[in-house]
Amino acid sequence: MNGWLAAACALLVLGLLPALAAACTGPVLRRVLAQNLTTVLTALVLLLLAQGYARPAYGDLALVLAVLGPAGTLVFERLLAEELAASPARTPFQRLMGLAGTAAVPPVVLALAVVTDPGRATVKLLLTGCLLLAGSAVCTRALTAAWGR
């Protein structure tokens, strides 16, 4: 087991398990925010696993998740608009989840970009990172805006 796999395991235990717990309890707004956080963290774990197993092709999984994850969260945002509007006001915990969804991306992606040989793989990695960042930021904003409506 190398450092990348250890990092993936740590992210799984410290990030994904709490996010799962948050997705299973509480008001709908918190659950959807947690679902968004889960997609981002899963994509990062997949990137770390690809590096850990030394199989660059596994990065495609993270790329697909980076494009489909926000679509999934926007599905909830669109079809649960009523429930989201009725959810109680934002708590600091929810703000933290929204922040974690975007803040966790750059360190992982940049660390991986440093060790990847420059080339197409780096471009794909950075593209995945940008898609994750943009998707997560847009979803978090849309969800918190839905609450006010």
């Binding site: 799984l12 994904l16 996010a19 799962l20 997705a23 947690a34 679902q35 889960t38 997609t39 899963t42 774990v45 997949l46 696993l49 999984l61 998740l65 999934g72």
Partner: peptide, 10 residues
């Protein structure tokens, strides 16, 4: 269910 799908993918 969405989260379960991600866990299964992992």
């Amino acid at each position: 269910l969405g989260v379960l799908g991600l866990a299964l993918a992992l």
